[in-house]
Design a protein around this nucleic acid. Structure first.
Lengths: 180, 180
DNA sequence: CGGCTATAGTACGAACGGTACTATACAGAT
DNA sequence: ATCTGTATAGTACCGTTCGTACTATAGCCG
């Protein structure tokens, strides 16, 4: 909760961070940027994400202008209040616990055969790795404003590679025992 | 969505699975069991979890009885419909994508100093590992009904250990460069 | 200039989640 | 016996979130 009653969540800070990075933006701009970066470690469905700039503007953290021509879309910019909320959050050591929702492990818990589940997850993580490596190339300059972006993409690559390799090792060990 | 309009989510299947495992149970029994197992890879806040058995009973997946004495709490059991929904889900290869919400990486993305964040996360994963290893000891028999439970705890241990070790390596490498 | 596809959203209602509060049981002190 | 503290076992409230489905605008190709 901020003092004015708007609750600021991770999704709120995702929006604020992206506007700080990109400058004044439409919700769609933000959504595109989100999907290529933050969504890899902070997932937000698009209906929620579209609603967030409006909420933040109501809370005074963003200001709205109207696009001059064409679709006359709304363009959001950081207010001073938004910028300082972002800075306070960034500097604060508080972290909500990491939250995971992995239906595959849930099925294994429920007694499902792990092999097809791990195989499906391997495919998923391989695709994700390819995607992340594409994004990493796209930000391969050395503008310090993009340091955090690169760092978090590298974290994402490391994370997905670790999981992928662990599951591949597991599948190989199973293949060895299972086919004897 | 089931044919009768109740949407079955991961949380629903968590409840159904736990009742299958434990037999007829009160919501509190289920919540206790959840926190020592499923919550490690499928987090559910307790208010949501308490509401779920009621929803499932309304949908016909669970039946309710009343405790004879004492608090006269409700006891939920699987109906045939609940059992078959659980079996269909368990056998189905469909998986929702793994969902992660990691505020630490979000802060790093936003430009925060990674070191204190990784240190906080290391502490968190160390505590989680200790907790999981406690649970593993508590189910160290060889009843095949608990195979899934043991397997998912082992997955949890492997997962947290991997993350912890990766972050420790990172912190050590930083300490080496940073203090030169 | 009509339809196709990609882009850029909104509407709606059920489900979810955080904060705070409530209620019951039981153990030990008085 | 009963008080009182603490662990247990929840519920109430209400704004937020989410999934499904639908809508609307822009550019492009024939």
């Amino acid at each position: 909760m901020s003092e004015n009653g708007t609750r600021l969540t991770g999704t709120s800070f995702a929006v604020l961070t992206l506007i700080e990075l990109l400058g004044p933006s439409t919700p769609y701009d933000l959504k595109q940027a989100l999907e290529r970066s933050i969504a890899n470690f902070w997932m937000v469905p698009h209906t929620t994400f579209y609603a967030e700039p409006t909420r933040l503007a109501e809370g005074g953290f963003l200001s709205e202008q109207q696009e001059a021509g064409g679709r006359r879309r709304k363009i959001y910019s950081l207010t001073d209040e938004g910028r300082s909320a972002l800075e306070r959050w960034r500097a604060s050591p508080e972290l909500s616990p990491p939250q995971l929702r992995e239906e595959g492990v849930l099925k294994i818990f429920a007694g499902a055969d792990p092999l097809p589940i791990f195989r499906a997850r391997c495919d998923w993580h391989r695709a994700k790795l390819a995607e992340l490596e594409g994004y990493l190339e796209a930000v391969s300059g050395d503008d310090p404003a993009w340091d955090g972006v690169r760092a978090s993409l590298q974290v994402g690559v490391a994370y997905n590679r670790m999981l992928l390799e662990a599951m591949e090792r597991f599948l190989e060990s199973q293949a060895a025992t299972g086919s004897s």
